[in-house]
Design a protein around this nucleic acid. Structure first.
Lengths: 248, 248
DNA sequence: CGCGCTAGTTGATTTGCGTCAAAGCCCCTG
DNA sequence: CAGGGGCTTTGACGCAAATCAACTAGCGCG
């Protein structure tokens, strides 16, 4: 699993100026230069809304640095996070004009964007990229469906453990380390954001974090800094037989 | 919204022998004949498992008639349905060998299949089809994310209403009728399957169905036959501002 | 230094849904 | 027609998580 994760991430070609695994054109110099001409950058501050649900979206893009969240909301204020956008993740849907989600920057954010029209026509000229985009979308679909199991059937404690396991694994993969030995990382989310991800309240998140700490499953330095002494124990707490997917 | 639904369904080309909107080749006679040679049919009885999670899958296919469910399970027996396969829906992932889900026929089922290898190479030769496949996958991703809101944030009553609204709308669309006036349809799912879909127990599903009936939101003839006198009222019960998506 | 602000923790109480149990309905079959 | 088995309904009870509320930690700032 870890190997798979690393393989997936390494498809982000590090020397490619587009810095996105969907549109990395290392195997096609022509495309590369065409993309170069098209692209532009946008920056957002932490807390800023990148796209409002229902807004017209005339661009697609990928995250260069920072973190953003995809959320859906009901009119009474209840919200559910449906995805996390990390560096190299793609946002925007070729062929649809409106975004069905709110996209909010949780940290300062830099995005690399392409206007939609030229991007779309480029896709049609370049099956290679269309194919890559399909694979990424299928990955996200699998991740979303795995999250449905978490939301529908897991207890609060299992939900927290699942989220921590995903973040820990992603972090280990980025550092090209395995998941043996203690894992150390910083939570990129507030308690409230975790709650929105997990379909819980922030109080419950806080309580379960404390409980996992009390039971020695995790250690906490401050509010955000986490140490996982035994990753397998965490997985067990998550109720995971399968070793979980990437939740994008 | 309804128009969108109908447009989407009508992309299933009725006179195309492949009967699937992803691989309908009406605009390409060459592809059509190549597909014709490749395809074969499989039939399953109600209750039969089409694919076990983790099994090697050497084919892809689409549903010709009947209904199947995609479910994920934890080893202690908790299960969560993550998708519903209706006629014209596609299953199987080009480029991956194992299925991450159990696929179970809930009615007698006929599937039109293609062996994976030739199907994959056909995709590469036919950008048209790859593009269609990407669109369908994006639709499914949107539907999955919408369902995450249902699972994470809605009450039992709202969950039931959401599911009924989706089925009612789909049914109305198939009959090319609007959603004004009373809607009548048969539930294609047992109470237990509904529970698995909604992250509830079957007892809760039963109770909430009774409650919606008592409050005049729905009428029930027998266990499966449902009448919705006022679709807008049902939507309100579902907590839906947006008029909901297609959940595949 | 004290003030105020935000994020997080912890406690008391309520409640919605799960669990366990019993009984009803319907279809099938002998 | 009786009997059995699957699906469904209904009831009683318990518990996990929500809600309401108080309090703490950390941090920037006048």
């Amino acid at each position: 699993m870890l190997n798979e994760t690393m393989a997936s991430l390494s498809q982000n070609c590090s020397d490619c100026p587009i810095r996105h695994r969907a549109v990395c054109a290392r195997c096609d110099a022509d495309e590369l230069s065409r993309l170069e001409e098209m692209k532009y950058y946008r920056t957002f501050e932490a807390g800023q809304t990148v796209i409002w649900s229902g807004d017209r979206m005339d661009f697609v893009g990928s995250v260069v640095s920072g973190i953003a969240t995809l959320t859906q909301a009901m009119e009474d204020g209840r919200t559910q996070m449906v995805g996390l956008l990390l560096p190299s993740d793609f946002v925007g849907r070729p062929g649809r004009t409106g975004s069905p989600y709110n996209v909010v920057a949780t940290t300062d954010l830099i995005m690399c964007c392409f206007r939609k029209k030229p991007f779309e026509s480029m896709i049609e000229r370049t099956p290679h990229i269309a194919h890559r985009l399909l694979e990424m979308t299928l990955d996200e679909l699998d991740a979303a469906r795995e999250w449905m199991l978490v939301l529908g059937r897991k207890t609060a404690r299992e939900k927290i453990a699942s989220l921590l396991a995903i973040i820990a694994r992603r972090d280990a993969a980025l550092q090209l380390r395995g998941t043996t030995g203690p894992l150390v990382f910083d939570l990129p989310l507030t308690r409230e954001a975790m709650a929105d991800y997990l379909g819980l309240t922030l109080e419950t998140v806080s309580r379960q974090m404390s409980a996992l700490k009390r039971d020695g499953v995790i250690e906490l330095q401050g509010k955000r800094h986490v140490t996982v002494p035994d990753f397998d124990l965490l997985l067990e707490e998550a109720g995971d037989d399968s070793d979980g997917g990437l939740l994008v």
